[in-house]
């Protein structure tokens, strides 16, 4: 997907605020991803917030993070209630959680999966994963972030790839800003992570692709 051709993902109605829900497993870097996306937005001169919610830490258990980006200060101090974007870092954990709760119309869902987006789309519309009848206006995208991470980083840590996919699919922050925060965070290892992010942004599959 070319970054010039994207439509911005929907924000919260009546504001310029974007609400993003990140979902994954403890140890996959969900919290780091939220933090870095927020940081990238702040680099762009905007206000951002990253609120992780997790239980007593356990590698492998469900981990979520809410990221909000706006031009003004954000007053909300709670987890996402009406996300416009859902980013799923893990390929299976989402089968067990109502991850789509509160999704706003026009929502964009990005899954780390090798499965065709149409298949996941059908499951969602069939009433799974917190789907609420009436909210039919959403788009399912997939990217095989695990393979990208294995190939480029040699480890199944998908957060940098999925951050790239997020940039590619929503345009809420720019790839340049993401690259800058990755450089700041990962130093020498940044180059490979940036490569993974870009590969994931290019590897997004839409229904019909």
């Amino acid at each position: 997907m070319d970054s010039t051709s994207i439509n911005l993902a929907p924000g919260v109605t009546g504001t310029d605020m974007h609400e993003v829900r990140l979902v994954g497993r403890g140890g996959q870097g969900v919290v780091t991803a939220g933090d870095l996306l927020g940081k990238a937005a702040v680099l762009e001169g905007r206000y951002a917030q990253s609120i992780p919610t997790f239980g007593p830490e356990r590698r492998g258990a469900l981990s979520q993070c809410t990221v909000r980006v706006s031009k003004d200060e954000i007053l909300l101090k709670c987890s996402s209630t009406s996300p416009g974007v859902l980013v799923v870092l893990d390929s299976s954990i989402w089968h067990f959680a109502p991850i789509t709760l509160g999704l706003v119309p026009g929502g964009r869902l990005i899954f780390n999966s090798t499965r065709p987006p149409a298949e996941i789309d059908a499951e969602l519309r069939g009433g799974k994963y917190g789907y609420q009848p009436g909210i039919d206006d959403f788009e399912v995208l997939t990217v095989d972030a695990t393979s990208i991470a294995m190939e480029i980083l040699g480890r199944p840590i998908t957060n940098t790839s999925m951050m790239g996919a997020f940039v590619g699919a929503t345009g809420i922050i720019s790839m340049d800003s993401l690259a800058r925060v990755l450089e700041e965070r990962f130093g020498e290892k940044a180059a490979l992570n940036i490569q993974a992010a870009k590969a994931a942004a290019a590897g997004i599959r839409k229904i019909g692709d």
């Binding site: 206000y47 917030q49 919610t53």
Partner: peptide
């Protein structure tokens, strides 16, 4: 400051 909501949440 509230645990998680402020302790673990990042803001500018």
């Amino acid at each position: 400051y509230d645990g998680f909501i402020l302790s673990h949440a990042s803001e500018p």
